[in-house]
């Protein structure tokens, strides 16, 4: 049936879509693999070959070797082990941040879009103001001035992650609140909470999923930018952004001390981006009505 409807009535976009279909699966496969690897590092930091905090000044800035695949940093700490140790904050924090931001956005967007009226106006107005504020800049100022730790960074970025998601999801809700299937649910006598949970939220779920992965990407970039600036993380802790800041002065001695964590950050952000895109297209395709 999908085939039949795909070519009916001159709506021919599926052809274009298939023509446009990128060789994503390979890229997505790699992304998933990398994500899995990162998660393993989170669950089992003991796979690291060395103690990530073990200092040995005699081994300052060694190049890659069998013992130290990516060499060492100034204090002689093993880069690979520090990257593995850093995976915890690099992966968990963005996930938590994105989960919080998207969950909260969904609640607020559904509330605003479905109820409309004054609640919508208030949420919309506040959202517009928040939306026009550059999140990273504000995070730098607040985290810097208050001198707070990692939790504060996450909290601030979570709040500033709301407006974009709320806008997107609220628009999606507005597009759907008056669609027949929502009205039919009302007509059949379902309670409002049930309509929201079993009709509206599933209907926008592809967007929620995409928002989540996009937010993960943003979070990876913004959180690591903060730690690169030395904000939010304790000096000396194995954080990818911080490692880059520490080791960037010594690019000529051991480039991998900075490039290692840099590439890991890029790969992580790209992976979540690609997975999000791919899930969205799949999800949307499965649910696409024509």
């Amino acid at each position: 049936m999908t085939d039949a409807s795909a070519l009916t009535g001159g709506r021919i976009t599926p052809w274009r879509r298939s023509a446009r279909r990128l060789k994503l699966p390979v890229a997505v496969g790699i992304s998933v693999l990398f994500m899995a690897l990162a998660v393993i590092c989170v669950i089992a930091p003991f796979v690291a070959p060395h103690d990530p905090t073990f200092i040995d000044p005699t081994k300052s800035f060694l190049g890659p070797s069998l013992d130290h695949p990516l060499g060492t940093d100034q204090l002689g700490r093993d880069i690979v082990s520090r990257i593995i140790a850093g995976a915890r904050t690099a992966v968990l924090a963005p996930l938590a941040l994105a989960a919080g931001a998207v969950l909260l956005s969904t609640v607020l967007a559904v509330l605003a879009g479905y109820t409309g009226g004054r609640i919508d106006a208030v949420i919309g107005r506040a959202n517009d103001i928040l939306y026009s504020i550059p999140s990273l800049t504000v995070a730098i100022v607040i985290v810097g001035v208050v001198g707070g730790g990692f939790t504060l960074s996450i909290a601030v970025l979570m709040v500033f992650g709301l407006p974009g998601n709320i806008r997107l999801l609220r628009a999606a809700v507005l597009e759907r609140v008056n669609l027949p299937y929502i009205e039919a649910a009302k007509m059949s006598g379902l309670s409002t909470p049930r309509i929201l949970l079993t009709q509206l939220v599933p209907a926008i779920s592809p967007l929620i999923v995409t928002s989540f992965f996009l937010q993960v990407t943003f979070a990876i970039v913004e959180l690591s930018s903060l730690s690169f600036l030395g904000l939010g993380v304790a000096p000396g802790s194995p954080d990818w952004g911080l490692m880059l800041a520490e080791n960037r002065a010594a690019l000529s001695s051991n480039v991998w001390a900075a490039a290692g964590p840099a590439l890991c950050l890029v790969a992580l952000a790209v992976s979540s981006n690609l997975i999000g895109d791919w899930l969205y297209t799949r999800y949307e395709k499965a649910g696409r009505s024509r």
Binding site: L244, R248, A269, S272
Partner: peptide, 11 residues
């Protein structure tokens, strides 16, 4: 678009 600006910068 998904690389942190400092990572790009250092590389």
């Amino acid at each position: 678009a998904s690389s942190p600006v400092f990572a790009t910068g250092v590389l």
